[in-house]
Design a protein around this nucleic acid. Structure first.
Lengths: 218, 218
DNA sequence: CAACATGCATACTGGTTGGTATGTTGTCAG
DNA sequence: CTGACAACATACCAACCAGTATGCATGTTG
């Protein structure tokens, strides 16, 4: 314990760091699932990508499904927050339409991202029908997303910057559907140009939501 | 054997009917792939769904991939033709917007279809990134779809029933993206109501494409 | 230091998978 | 009737795969 001298708050070469191990597994698993889908993702492949062993993995996650749930709750949910909810909340003062345009334009558009598609859509397409637990968690994310967009639109209506004749909930769904629809098109084409064109059209449509007298372009 | 007379053009109880066997395999394989995805679809499951044996399958298709390609080329492509291209072509006399609305509203919306999603999107999401041969065939279908919608929109512009300020190609992509986006949303929710709401909004948007003076509603 | 749980490593298993080798039968030409 | 080929049927295989049993090292606590 305290026989030999100096050792106050010392933990230099951490041999054991369970939280770090868990995170590395999660990240590697996410990449594998993102690429091949959940069902076709291989446990052994994930382990090979890290230098973690099977014993460690099954210590942190009790099954492949549990690993999948953690990916959704800790990674995919976080991505949605980072890219949509937080930016929208941080723009309380700005015009909501401008905020939405900013968010849409900030969606990653590197070839790598376009070719991989949207993680949320990928998992939904594959698993919603097959596994209730997956669906529940994925829907929670969709719901938060939808709520965030709805809220900002409603705020715009109060401000007078967003047209009053449209229903915030349905307009939010419309936007989300468009974003995901274009991601599917771009993924099929495996071409970032398709995505960029989509963004242009989405932005054009977003501009059409401005209340008269608050138009930027037309 | 042939002592008794009549036998002109006789082929009564064919025990062997290779074309029928092939079709049954294709249909069963499509259902399996539609449900579980291509990678997770099991050859043995497909065989169990029919009463065909493995020898027969590998006589007609040289590999699982070949079976997948046939599904795309002979079933998915045919569905797109039936639901979009042929109806649009057959409506040469009608208003293009009305034709598009009709087609969109005619998309299957039984719970079973909504929960399964769009076969084209399912396969695209799963395979476009992983297999060039899949992607090539899927893109051919998308291209035909896009072309069909573009053509009908352009015709509407010549007729004067469709707004001249919009670009037919981009408007077609916009429509396709929306249809698929809403299918993804509905599939995630596993709820036909989501799809019906989506249709209403798509129809509303389609109505906004009418040239002034040709409006139905506004 | 002992005792004990945490964190991880290794070897193994039972079941499933796509694919094949080989045998058998239906079909039809000659 | 008889090959001969097309259209299957059956048995089998090697590879893979999620999961587990077991053991060992590390850190903590009394």
């Amino acid at each position: 314990m305290l026989s030999a001298g100096k050792k106050p708050t010392r933990k230099p070469p951490k041999l054991r760091d369970p939280e770090r191990t868990r995170q590395r597994l999660l990240q590697a698993a996410f990449r594998e699932v993102y690429r091949y889908g959940f069902q076709s993702a291989g446990i052994d492949t994930i382990l090979a990508a890290t230098d973690v062993t099977k014993g460690a993995l099954y210590y942190h996650f009790k099954s492949k499904e549990a690993l999948g749930y953690a990916i959704i709750e800790e990674i995919v949910a976080e991505m949605t927050h980072d890219r949509w909810l937080r930016p929208l909340q941080r723009s309380r003062d700005k015009n909501p339409i401008d905020a939405l345009i900013g968010v849409v334009q900030a969606i990653p558009h590197q070839p790598r991202d376009v070719k991989g598609g949207c993680p949320l859509v990928n998992l939904t397409q594959e698993m919603s029908q097959l596994d209730k637990e997956f669906r529940k968690r994925l829907e929670r994310i969709f719901h938060g997303w939808h709520e965030g967009v709805t809220t900002v639109l409603r705020r715009g209506q109060h401000q007078g910057t967003v047209r009053r004749d449209l229903v915030p909930e349905e307009t939010a769904s419309f936007l989300i559907a468009m974003v995901e629809g274009y991601e599917v098109l771009a993924k099929n084409a495996q071409d970032a140009k398709v995505w960029n064109t989509g963004i242009r059209n989405i932005v054009g449509w977003l501009n059409s939501l401005r209340a008269p007298g608050n138009r930027r372009r037309g």
